[in-house]
Write a protein that binds this DNA or RNA. Structure first.
Lengths: 277, 277
DNA sequence: GATCATAGTCGTCTTCCTGACGATAAGCAC
DNA sequence: GTGCTTATCGTCAGGAAGACGACTATGATC
C-alpha cells in the first residue's frame, strides 16, 4: 500500500501558544502581546507561533518562550537541582475548532510556562508590544464561569461572545484574541490545581526564597489568604520539599527569614488542598 | 495585510488517537486494533484517524469512538444524570515529534475514553481486527518506568526503544506501533490519578452498580487491594458521590449488595489517595 | 533608646480522616 | 445444617490540618 495520498487528508497549520504565568506584586499575571496584524489586529493575545518543519512541539514552545521572555525552558525530566533561571514548561491542551481562526484551519498546542518574576518583557516577532497582565483583568467572571461548566462550548468563541469584548481602556477586562481567553483560563486552572499536589509553586520563586515568599505565591495563584503558621508547618514538614539554603533575608521587612531552595521532591503527599469555597 | 501565505508554514496531518480503557475480568484493558498497512503493518496500535476538514477535535474523537466501539461519547459538560451507555471522553495530550510517523509530519491529539465492560469490539476501517488487551501486557516494565521519569523522551520513540519489540506470541509484551506505548502509558497514568480526586471511576461501571463493583474498578486500575470496609465507608460517606438506586443484586455472590447510581458530584474532596508504594 | 509595626517561627488543642481490624448479616453450594 | 463468599456496621489509634496563642527579630518612628 502506498504512503498517504496527500489529498486524502486536509492540511492543517500547527502552532504553539504559550500561557506564561508569573507572580508580580501579589497578583498572578500572564504574558500577552499585542497583535500587529489581522484578524484581531491591535488586540491582546497569548504569544505563540508556527511549529517548524523539523521541530518537536515542546521544542517549538521552548523556542517561543526564549524569543518572548529570554527564559530558558527547564525540562521537568532534568535532575532535581534546577538550573537557575529556567522556567517550568509543560503541555497544556490542544485547541482545534474549525472556526477558531477565520483564515484557515489552525490547530494550536497550548503550553503552560511558570516563571519567577521577570523584568519587563521584550516584544518579539509580529507583536507591537508585550506586557504582564493580571489574569483577573483578562478573565471576566463570565469567562471563568464558562470554564468550570461548559466544556461543550469548547472552541466556539473565535469571535467572542461579544459581552466581554471591552475596548482598550485600562482597568476593565480586555477580550483576548481568538479563543485565548479559554486557553488562559485552562492554563490558570491547571496551575491552580497543580500546585496543590506538586512542588511546582517553587517555579514562581527565585532560586532562593523564604517560606513567606512561597506562601505569597500560593495566595496569589489561589486568590486566598493562608495561615502563615500552618503553611510554615506544612511546607517545612514535608520531606524533600524545601532544603535550607543557609542564609537569611529581610527583603520582606520584619524578622529575618530563613532562605530555602526547592528540594528534589516533586510530588506533595499528602497534598496541600485549596481552602473550601 | 494579506491572509497567511500557505507556503509560510509547513502543512501537518492531524489525527486523533484513542486510549479506550475498560475493566474486564479484574484487569485494566485497552482497545487495540491491528494495522492493515505499512508502516508497522500487522502490529497492534491504538485506534484513531484523521481529523476532517470541518470537524472539531473532540468531535473527531467521538466519531472514532463510535466507529470502533459503538459507544456514544458522553460530554462531561452534560447534566450530571448521565445517559446510560455513554463513555467518558477527554483530551489527553498531543504528540508531534517530527519522526513519529516515517511517512510525513503527523500531529496526533490523543484522547482518553473510559467505558464500562463491553462485548467484543467491532473492527472498523483499516484494521484487520481489534481486541481488548490488558494494559499490563502492552506496557513492559521499561516503558512504565520511562513514563514516570523521562519527560524528555516525550515523543522520540517512533521506532520504540527496541527492547520491548516482542513479537506476536501470546502472553509476552507486544510492542505497539508508532509512539503508542507512550500514549497508552500517559493515558493509564491519567486514569490512575484522576480517579483519586474525581468520581470518574463510575465511568467504568454500568449505570447501576454496587460498592464492591466500584471497589474492584479501583483495584484493577491501581493494581492494588483495598480494604472493603474502609472503601465502603469512604464512598458512601462522600456526599453526592453515590445515590442509592433502590435495589440489590447478588451477581458477585455472597450477601446481596445495594445498587447505586453515580451521584452528581464530580470532585472528591478529600480525595481517595492511592496507597503508598 | 523606647515603642510600634511587620514578619517569621514554635506550640497547643480540637477535629476530621484514614488504616487496621473485629463482628455481624445474608446469600449460595453441599 | 456447615462452610464459603461478599456486604455492611463499629471501634480504635495515629496522623494531618484548621484555629489560634505566644514569642522572636528586624526596621521605622518617636
Amino acid at each position: 500500500m502506498p504512503p498517504y495520498d496527500p489529498s486524502a487528508f486536509p492540511p492543517f497549520a500547527v502552532t504553539v501558544d504559550l500561557v506564561v504565568l508569573t507572580v508580580r506584586r501579589h497578583a498572578l499575571c500572564t504574558l500577552v502581546v499585542r497583535r500587529g496584524e489581522a484578524p484581531y489586529q491591535g488586540r491582546w493575545a497569548l504569544p505563540g507561533g508556527f511549529v517548524r518543519e523539523d521541530e518537536d512541539l515542546s521544542g517549538a514552545a521552548a523556542r517561543e518562550l526564549v524569543e518572548e521572555t529570554g527564559l530558558c525552558a527547564h525540562d521537568p525530566a532534568a535532575p532535581p537541582p534546577v538550573p537557575s533561571n529556567g522556567a517550568h514548561l509543560e503541555q497544556l491542551a490542544t485547541y482545534g475548532a474549525p472556526d477558531r481562526d477565520p483564515r484557515m484551519r489552525v490547530v494550536s498546542v497550548a503550553h503552560l510556562a511558570l516563571a519567577p518574576d521577570l523584568p519587563a518583557p521584550r516584544a518579539g516577532g509580529d507583536a507591537n508590544s508585550a506586557r504582564w497582565a493580571p489574569v483577573e483583568e483578562l478573565l471576566g467572571e463570565d469567562v471563568l464561569a464558562g470554564t468550570a461548566e461548559a466544556g461543550a462550548a469548547h472552541g466556539a468563541g473565535a469571535g467572542g461572545s461579544g459581552e466581554a469584548a471591552g475596548d482598550e481602556k485600562e482597568g476593565g477586562p480586555v477580550a483576548l484574541a481568538f479563543d485565548h481567553a479559554r486557553i488562559l483560563a485552562d492554563g490558570v486552572e491547571r496551575a491552580r490545581s497543580k500546585i496543590e499536589y506538586s512542588s511546582l509553586a517553587t517555579a514562581f520563586c527565585p532560586p532562593e526564597f523564604t517560606v513567606g515568599e512561597l506562601r505569597r505565591v500560593y495566595e496569589a495563584v489561589w486568590g486566598v489568604a493562608l495561615d502563615p503558621r500552618n503553611f510554615h508547618r506544612k511546607v517545612t514538614g514535608t520531606p524533600g520539599f524545601l532544603v535550607p539554603a543557609g542564609g537569611t533575608t529581610t527583603r520582606q521587612g520584619g524578622r529575618p527569614a530563613q532562605l530555602f531552595r526547592a528540594g528534589g521532591a516533586t510530588l506533595l503527599n499528602p497534598p496541600m488542598l485549596r481552602p473550601e469555597v
